[in-house]
Amino acid sequence: MSQTQSLRKRLIETPPHWTTVLALIVLLAIVAMALFAPRIANFPPTELNAMMRLKPADGTYWMGTDSFGRDLYSRVIHGARVSLLVGAGVALGAILIGLPLGLLAGWFRGLDAVLMRAMDGLMAIPGILLAIAIVALTKAGLTTVIIAIMLPEIPQVVRLVRARVLATRSETFVEAAVLLGTSPMRIIWRHLLPSTIAPLIVQGTYVYASAILTEAALSFLGVGIGTETPTWGNIMAEGRLYFALNPWLVYWPAIVLSLCILSINLLGDALRDRLDPKMKGRS
């Protein structure tokens, strides 16, 4: 109880920096854009129009049209849906799997050696190689993409949680609990879990941002979600073929994507400064 109270206090005690406020506004705008995409889009994102191929931006087509005559603005807005969904799925999944593994590794020393070597092994495989292999060898759908991006993110979460547990377990109140004969599961739940929440929230924002980037890279390489569902990555992948003709087919989705990632990263930094004052201004 006191843990959550102090978390809340640290979050709101000082007014935020203006960049944090701006980042929050931009991110909320992008979330709103994704939620209300069908209403604010001017055209259905997959509506073809052979007469209107590769038009420059004007009053009707705010960002111009792509090589199939589809409205770029409507596609970019709909693209936000997949990106935000993938980010959320990956961040939640990585934490749900990594948290228990990290808690167990930190507490049970015998398990630790084996589990951490396995995590080292997973970290040694470049994330995007693993992800493109998983997506290409199975069927590329939303779930596959989320799993493929999530797997390489798990070791970082495990390492973070484990480090917290190792630091907390030498505290007097944990030693006292052990001496009183408290069961390991109860110690983990009552004493070790709370200390991992703040760093996990921060790590979660970075995983979220990195997942959106990886999804875009996968789509860009042609192993992501099919182009009938527009994503920022596959809009750019299609646009690159006409890059010399109209670079805005790549630039528009790139600008929205980068603003989104930038906001998440800035919010993550702000959260870290508040939740983890020792880390302020570090790395």
Partner: peptide, 16 residues
């Protein structure tokens, strides 16, 4: 922070 936020392929295309 910008370097972390812009995908490599976008930087590549802007450079091109």
């Amino acid at each position: 922070v910008i370097g972390f936020s812009v995908p490599i392929f976008v930087i590549g295309y802007v450079l091109i």
